[in-house]
């Protein structure tokens, strides 16, 4: 937001409110990913259930943000930085809502996993997740600080997430091939891994939005890409 306050105070309040709803929503998403990951590590079903339940809160925030954005556009006709604030809030909230959904999906699958999964699998998974957590935290900080530099950092960081995801996928595929009995858990784990990676992708989308919000320009160039994804089926 610009330094100077709006002459119309209620307008100023509405924009601040929109902003703080995004921050709160982001906080819930962060928490969801942390809890979903803890549930995998410690096989704690309470955590998983909390994530599933809290997703409703995130969905409600999305609706709230959407209503606020529509009101701002209809009643205030925001311009320049205010217009970018308003439009990016809408887009960021929809990415955050997807993040919430993905965390919920991870938790649902976690509840179905067996107790004793090989440690190397859990480790690989946690490695992806904790890096995505870092990305998500950074991007929420970037939003708070209106920092395009931090946004670019996160954007570039997605390549590493893709690499970690591929490594993790390879572990899971190895595990799948070891024994037919591993089929159920292995399949869930593939989806869990993929979902964590998707959370990273949404984080990258948010980075693009923040860059636009701050600079008024679009992040140029191709999206960072890691190594090619592993092919799962045998030829």
């Amino acid at each position: 937001m610009s330094e100077a306050p709006h002459t119309v105070k209620s307008y100023e309040e509405e924009l601040k409110n929109l902003n703080s709803n995004i921050v709160k929503m982001g906080g819930f998403c962060e928490e969801a990913l942390v809890k979903a990951t803890q549930a995998i590590i410690s096989r704690n079903s309470d955590n998983a259930e909390t994530v599933i339940k809290n997703d409703e809160k995130i969905d409600k925030f999305e609706t709230l943000v959407e209503q606020q954005v529509v009101n701002l556009i209809a009643l205030r006709q925001p311009m320049a930085i205010d217009l970018r604030e308003t439009v990016t809030a809408l887009k960021i909230s929809s990415d955050l809502e997807r993040i919430g959904d993905l965390a919920k999906n991870i938790s649902k699958r976690t509840l179905l996993l067996n107790e004793n999964l090989p440690k190397n699998l859990i480790d690989a998974l946690v490695r992806v997740s904790s890096n995505v957590q870092k990305q998500l935290k950074s991007i929420l900080d970037a939003y708070l600080d209106r920092s395009s530099a931090m946004a670019v950092n996160v954007w570039e960081g997605d390549e590493y997430i893709d690499d970690l995801t591929n490594l993790c996928m390879q572990e899971v595929i190895k595990y799948l091939k070891e024994n037919e009995k591993n089929l159920d858990d292995g399949t869930h784990l593939l989806f869990v891994t993929k979902n964590i990676e998707r959370i990273g992708d949404h984080t990258t989308n948010i980075a693009e939005q923040i860059y636009y919000l701050v600079t008024g320009e679009y992040l140029e160039g191709d999206r960072p890409k890691g190594t090619e994804p592993v092919v799962t089926g045998e030829k």
Binding site: P5, I81, L83
Partner: peptide
């Protein structure tokens, strides 16, 4: 000018942040 003005004064004026 209306999406991304260069000057802060312009921005303050068109977004209603003047004076």
């Amino acid at each position: 000018i209306f999406k991304n003005p260069d000057n802060t004064k312009t921005q303050d004026y068109i977004t209603g942040r003047f004076g």
